[in-house]
Nucleic acid binder design. Structure first.
Length: 467
RNA sequence: GGCGCGGUAGCAGAGUGGUUAUGCAGCGGACUGCAACUCCGUUUACGCCGGUUCGAUUCCGACCCGCGCCUCCA
């Protein structure tokens, strides 16, 4: 087994070596819950869902932690705008996120720590940093990290600390010793959300919570840390600085970052306002189409969210479900059976190569071809085996979980027609064909086609799906 | 200005120092009452210029173009 992982820190693929044999401890930066999760969040969550599924499939004992940031300035501002306690907002958004995850077939992480449940751990870590002179309290009551003191600062994002100032984009703050310093603890007014600390009433900065929660749950050193592409700097750079200064240990061995999601070839961002929430997308496309769209690219490649690309993803997924249509009752194959599959090695090699799901999908297309050929040739036993394999591999990617018939027929009703209407027309067409009245038969087929219903004639009869 | 990523056939998107990616679309054939589905076959590539090499899309260098981060953002 030669798992290769691209690490942002090394800037190349590396052979994966666990800290503890057979075990992988993974931490992924989750969402700040002040709004509904968007398609960029979906990408990160799906990417790591696939990664964790595959690692477990490969026999690793994985501990997967993904945090929830449930206290920060954006949350407080939004809650104030809404005129509600911030906890009401976060609880609602956390529920919504979980709902989105379930729809997309994302398994929950093993641990889902919340910042507000770890305030003591955060304070402890800040105190350690203060004691070590890696942090200081400014006269405005905030506690800042002393970037200058951490000589490795910049190693993840490839930045020279001295040059960070050159861009003049760093927020200048008279309270900081150095403009590069960042907040570990923010003082708060009496009426604001906060906690008691050695530095007074306040709340944690953004970066420190991940250092505290990851080391608290996974240890001072762990194997993999992941997140979205825009977290490399400053968030993850700061996490390294905080964690390694606090523990004096090497923090993380492999840093994994997903690629960006673009919308119609423009960067999707909060500031541009061109982002789509997961629930907006799910209102238009079957959840698994969205998942298939994401899995169809390598997790590190930039992807472009567009109508055309989603339709293409749907067509691609349709092919799989069409092939599985007559095998709804076949159980997914276990790993031991999958080893016998003629595409096993291609699938495994693809996924071992930095989780190349697109290449893995090519292997599954080959399986579909074999399955269709076997079904066509009437080789029922062989077809059953191939269908079971297809479902088994699909489970590793989190695909093909829906009932094929339900997937292909889509949500009812199709336009103003119910399934019964459609089936009545199909029956009428069959009778017309038996009567050799092909004019009437074709007329019915055209009528249904105009409503997006595609008919497929087989020896056993006629089935339909939305086109 | 600093750091980094990428340019593959009509589209999407993998990969490789010499041998078919894959899917969709196109074309030809089988199947069909005709189609659809499916199967078989098949046409379109590797930004530009040099270099290394027996041979480069694949390695090296320059160039052009696009993109990202450097600021809250997954």
């Amino acid at each position: 087994m030669t798992l290769q992982i691209y690490s942002t820190l090394a800037r190349r693929k590396e052979m994966f070596k666990p800290i503890e044999p057979g075990k992988i401890r993974l931490y992924v930066c989750g969402n700040t819950v002040y709004d509904f999760a968007h398609i960029g969040h979906a990408r990160v969550m799906v990417a790591f869902d696939v990664i964790v599924r595959y690692l477990r499939f490969s026999g690793w004992d994985v501990t997967y932690a993904r945090n929830i940031t449930d206290i920060d300035d954006k949350i407080i501002n939004r809650a104030n705008e809404n005129g509600e306690p911030f906890t009401a907002l976060t609880e609602r958004m956390i529920d919504a996120q979980h709902e989105d995850e379930r729809a997309l077939g994302i398994d929950p992480p093993d641990i889902e720590p919340r910042a507000t449940a770890h305030i003591d751990d955060i304070i402890d870590m800040i105190q350690t940093l203060v004691d070590n002179h890696y942090a200081y309290m400014a006269n405005n009551g905030d506690v800042y990290y002393r970037v200058k003191r951490f000589s490795d600062y910049g190693k993840l994002s490839g930045r020279n600390p001295d040059e960070l100032l050159a861009g003049a984009r760093v927020e200048v703050d008279e309270h900081k010793e150095d403009p590069r310093d960042f907040a570990l603890w923010k003082s708060a007014g009496a009426g604001e959300p906060g906690w008691e600390s050695p530095w007074g009433w306040g709340r944690p900065g953004w970066h420190i919570e991940c250092s505290a929660m990851s080391t608290c749950h996974l240890g001072d050193s762990f194997d993999i840390h992941g997140g979205g592409p825009d977290l490399v700097f400053p968030h993850h750079e700061n996490e390294i600085a905080q964690s390694e200064a606090a523990t004096s240990k090497h923090y993380v061995n492999y840093w994994m970052h997903a690629g960006a999601v673009r919308v119609d070839n423009e960067k999707m961002s909060k500031s541009l306002g061109n982002f789509f929430t997961i629930r907006e997308v799910l209102a238009r496309y079957h959840p698994e189409v969205v998942r298939f769209f994401l899995v169809s690219s390598h997790y590190r490649s930039p992807i472009n969210y567009s109508e055309a690309n989603l339709i293409e993803a749907r067509n691609g997924l349709d092919r799989f479900y069409s092939a599985l249509r007559d095998f709804a009752s076949v159980e997914a194959a276990e790993k031991s059976e999958l080893r016998a599959s003629q595409v096993f090695e291609q699938f495994q090699a693809a996924m071992d190569d930095d989780f190349n799901s697109r290449e893995a999908l090519a292997a599954l297309h080959e399986l579909v071809r074999l399955l269709n050929a076997a079904a066509r040739a009437g080789e029922q036993d062989r077809a059953d085996v191939l269908a079971a394999q297809l479902k088994g591999f699909g489970m590793v990617l989190g695909l093909f979980r829906d009932d094929p018939e339900r997937y292909l027929k889509g949500a009812e009703p199709e336009g103003d027609m119910t399934a019964e209407d459609i089936e009545a027309l199909i029956e009428e067409r069959l009778q017309a064909r038996r009567d050799r009245d092909f004019g009437r038969a074709d007329q019915i087929r055209d009528e249904l086609a105009a409503r997006g219903i595609v008919l497929e004639d087989t020896r056993e009869g006629t089935s339909w799906r939305r086109g």
